[in-house]
């Protein structure tokens, strides 16, 4: 009963989430008694492909034809073909933009029950039962997969990366899928140097009304640059037009689960917390010691974000330079 991991790369380098997925898959494969297979789509060099062995993969299928963009139907075909090829029973993907796009289609295609946003290794294998967050992190639920096959999407940062000394064999994989058959056509791409996808970012620096004005965002952006982070904001900030709407995180905005979430001048309304509470570590800086954000935060400073930020930037720069 083998497992297939759909890995993701950016410009030929595997994203960190790929290693998380493989480490998780290795634990699942140990439970079900099978191998971990990895699928890579796009141009990735041999060394990078075989490095997946260090995270538990025994076989890497490399579909190196490069579709021009994420066409959900084309990718679904390729991944379904890879599942057939290795005879896998469980498909593991990230609970991110592409996982959310593809996992539901693959669930239907493979007649495989989907547990989206799982947070731990299965507690039983026969039947397969996994835990996931529900009600935007306010509770957890145990989901039983009723079908023979399963698709699991793993919640970001919920599983530690385990390096092993394994080696993976790499095989070129021709899925037989016609890449030109994509129904969607990319018309325009706008990329900004250093602009990270907020929903996938490992570190997110966020500002709220306590930043006092949209003109005060330079230190937020500087801290984000220093930490290689994405920037976000609370709803009042995007409603005021201080920041673009696509930075709004919360119940009705983007839902994120970074490794580190730093909230400056955000009081932490329940709707905001619903969008960020899955973050692994939350740091809050707010002038109001009774602000609800401190109930969800791991580390807090009662103080003015505008005064704390410059000191924090300089201290982190010092530490990073060491």
């Amino acid at each position: 009963m083998s497992v297939l991991v759909y890995t993701e790369n950016w410009d030929g380098k595997f994203k960190k989430l790929s290693y998380e997925l493989l480490s998780y898959a290795k634990s699942v494969a140990t439970l079900v008694g099978g191998d971990v297979n990895a699928l890579s789509i796009g141009k990735v060099n041999q060394d990078e492909l075989s490095s997946l062995g260090n995270y538990g993969a025994s076989l890497v299928l490399s579909a190196d034809g490069t579709p021009s963009g994420l066409d959900n139907q084309v990718y679904t075909e390729i991944i379904a073909a890879a599942m057939d090829k290795v005879g896998a029973r469980i498909l593991i993907m990230a609970h991110n933009n592409s996982g959310k796009a593809l996992a539901p289609r693959l669930s239907v295609r493979l007649k495989a029950g989907l547990a989206a946003g799982v947070i731990a290794v299965p507690e039983s294998v026969n039947p397969l039962v996994v835990s996931k967050k529900v009600f935007s992190g306010k509770a957890k639920g145990k989901v039983e997969i009723l079908t023979e096959k399963a698709v699991l999407t793993l919640s970001q940062n919920s599983f530690e990366i385990n390096e092993t000394a394994g080696t993976a064999s790499v095989e070129s994989f021709d899925s037989g899928v016609d890449l030109a058959a994509a129904a969607t056509t990319i018309k325009d791409v706008q990329k900004q140097e250093g602009k990270l996808l907020l929903t996938d970012a490992d570190v997110v620096i966020s500002g709220g009304r306590g930043m006092k004005s949209g003109d005060n965002w330079a230190p937020i952006e500087e801290l984000a640059t220093v930490l290689g982070a994405a920037t976000a904001c609370s709803r009042p900030v995007s409603d005021e037009g201080w920041r673009p709407h696509d930075e709004h995180t919360g119940q009705t905005g983007k839902i994120i689960a970074p490794n580190l979430y730093m909230a400056f001048g955000i009081s932490g309304a329940i709707q905001h917390l619903a969008g960020v509470s899955s973050s692994k570590c939350i740091v809050a800086v707010n002038t109001d010691k009774d602000a609800p954000i401190f109930e969800s935060a791991d580390y807090g400073i009662v103080g003015d974000a505008l005064k704390v930020l410059p000191e924090l930037i300089s201290e982190i720069k010092t530490v990073k330079a060491q």
Binding site: W10, L70, N97, T184, T185, V189, Q190, Q192, E193, L197
Partner: peptide, 11 residues
């Protein structure tokens, strides 16, 4: 939204 920015597509 995509890695590094955004794209427009026709469907």
């Amino acid at each position: 939204d995509i890695d590094g920015g955004r794209e427009e597509l026709s469907v």
